[in-house]
Structures are given as structure tokens and as C-alpha cells.
Design a protein around this nucleic acid. Structure first.
Lengths: 159, 159
DNA sequence: TATTGTTATACTCTATAACTATA
DNA sequence: TATAGTTATAGAGTATAACAATA
């Protein structure tokens, strides 16, 4: 295990210190780093971050329809189609005609897809555990709660 | 007989509950909402989020060089050039040859740029105050601290 | 040789409109 | 009329390589 020097983050010598007062900016910067790291890690198993989200949702909710999936993941139906085409071509998910509505597809994960998804979840967990290692369980919990709270507040404001 | 869920998901059901255990996913979702809202708000004053960051940095650090700016904002020099072209064309910043290094440009904000930047900061503050209104000052403070801590940890890991 | 700014390019992510077939 | 899935496309944001001028 690597023992990294743990120094308090000082931003006074950074040119973006003024920007650091904004939650959104800090969020963008933090996610930018996580995204880069996760994208790299997922390359080993040929998965993209967006496809991982799709896999997780289909694993947890078999039979989910595309429209419901897109809405739940906050992505456009149109963009989901291509992801599913790719996942289906790789044999990770399958579309089945939904009974009762011949327009809709019900989505299912394959055994291969399930395996890959669990593997990706492990990669994701390991990565997060690594950069959260000096955060308390309570800190992590309240961070997730706050992020969800903020997401909900902004969304509610728009509608 | 098809294996369909007994109760089809409604809008309020969350198909991504499994994903919600990941900090990165919550961060992406929260920022996605903030970004949409801020992009919309900035359209009134003809500014993009990226350009706003550049303006803020140049306002706070007059004479900053492009290379230093790009590094501090974690963006590529190549992409900064286009932003600066745009900001300069609008009369918001100006490039001046840096004394001592004829390759480099020193960046300065104009009066017009300063005015617009302060206006944008107000828009940003108002927007955040709105969706943070039921968060305590301590919650907000610890959120910022945690985001910066995470950003630093992931970055340190990569290097 | 290395660095600063630049150009060109490509790839991903995201957003929108329009189409089809069903409802 | 409205909805599910699809297609095509356009706009951002981001990343890389290569170049000229300068260090």
C-alpha cells in the first residue's frame, strides 16, 4: 500500500482561489480527476463510464424500458440507443420486446454482462476507497447526502 | 412467458440506486444540474462557464501568463487559446507581451471584463445560495473542503 | 534542447429535431 | 394525439501532435 504525504490543501497560491468559493467549480475539478482515473481503469475491461451506469441499472432492474432508463440516468433517449447498441453487440445486455407495448423494449443483462458489471463495480469501489482513505465514514456519508440534496434542489428549481 | 417486472418503474423510482453508492456518480449528477442552470444563467451576459473561470483568474492575478493559467485551471493550453481569442475579441481581456520572455503573453482584464466578471460572480453566488439555502454554513464549508481533498488525492495518486 | 503560444484535428459527451411504428 | 425507439446532426468540452518563435 502506498503511503502518500498528507498535506492540507492550500489554495492561496493558486490562480483559481477566487473560483474556489463556488461549490460548482470545486465539484467540476474533483469530478474531472475522478473521471480521468476511472476512464483509464475501465479501459482494461473495455467499458466506458456511461455504459457502466447503464449496466448497473439493468442489472438492478431487469426488464427496465429504455425510456425509463434514460430518465433515471438523466441522459437522452437518443444517446442511450448507441450505448445499448454497443452493449448488445458485446453481448452484455439484450433487448426484448416488452409484452403489452410493442413499441417498447425491455432490457436484460446477460451473464457475461453481469460478470463485467460486478468487476467494474469492484474497480470503482477500489478506486474510491483509495482516494477516500483518510475520510471518515461519516464524512463520506454526509458528502453523498449533500450531493444528492444539491442535485435535487437545482433540479426542483428548474422545474 | 417474459420476465417482466411486476410493477413498471414510475418516474419517481430510482433505477440508479446501486450507482448512488459511488461518490463519483453523485458528483457527476449534481454537477450536471448545476452546469445546466449556470449555462442558462450565463447566456444573459454572453458568457460560458469556461470563460468565466478564465476571467476570474485574470481578474485576481493580473499579468498571469497563458501557460500558468492553463495549468492552474487544469485545462489544455491549446484550448485556452480559443477562449482567450474570444474574450479578447469581446474586449474583456487583453494579451500583452511579457517583459523578459518574448514568447509569453501576460494577461490583463479590461474594465469591461472586470464589470462582466463581477456580474457573473453575482449570478453564480445567487444561484448557489439558492440551492444551498437549507444547508448550514458548516455543511457547505466541509463540502468544499472534502471536494478539494478528493481532487488532491486523486491527482496525487495519478502522479 | 526545452518552452510558449498556436493550429489543426479528433474523440467524447451532450442536446435537439425529425422520423417510424405503435398506443 | 401522444409515446417508444431510432436516426442524424450539431454543439460543447477535452485531448494530442506538430509547428514557429524564443529561451
Amino acid at each position: 500500500m502506498s503511503i502518500l504525504p498528507q498535506h492540507p490543501l492550500t489554495i492561496k497560491d493558486q490562480a483559481d482561489s477566487l473560483l474556489r468559493q463556488f461549490i460548482g467549480y470545486n465539484m467540476k475539478r474533483a469530478y474531472h480527476e475522478i473521471q480521468a482515473e476511472l476512464t483509464q481503469a475501465f479501459k482494461q475491461i473495455g467499458l466506458k463510464i456511461g455504459s457502466f451506469a447503464v449496466l448497473c441499472a439493468v442489472l438492478e432492474y431487469p426488464g427496465l424500458k429504455q425510456s425509463a432508463l434514460a430518465e433515471n440516468l438523466a441522459i437522452e433517449q437518443a444517446n442511450l440507443v448507441q450505448m445499448l447498441d454497443d452493449l448488445e453487440k458485446k453481448g452484455l445486455v439484450k433487448r426484448e420486446r416488452a409484452s403489452g407495448d410493442r413499441r417498447a423494449y425491455a432490457l436484460f443483462i446477460t451473464e457475461k454482462g453481469k460478470k463485467l458489471c460486478l468487476q467494474a463495480q469492484q474497480i470503482c469501489s477500489d478506486l474510491e476507497a483509495d482516494f477516500l482513505q483518510d475520510c471518515s465514514a461519516q464524512e463520506i456519508d454526509s458528502l453523498i447526502t449533500l450531493l444528492q440534496k444539491i442535485e435535487g434542489r437545482v433540479k426542483a428549481k428548474r422545474i
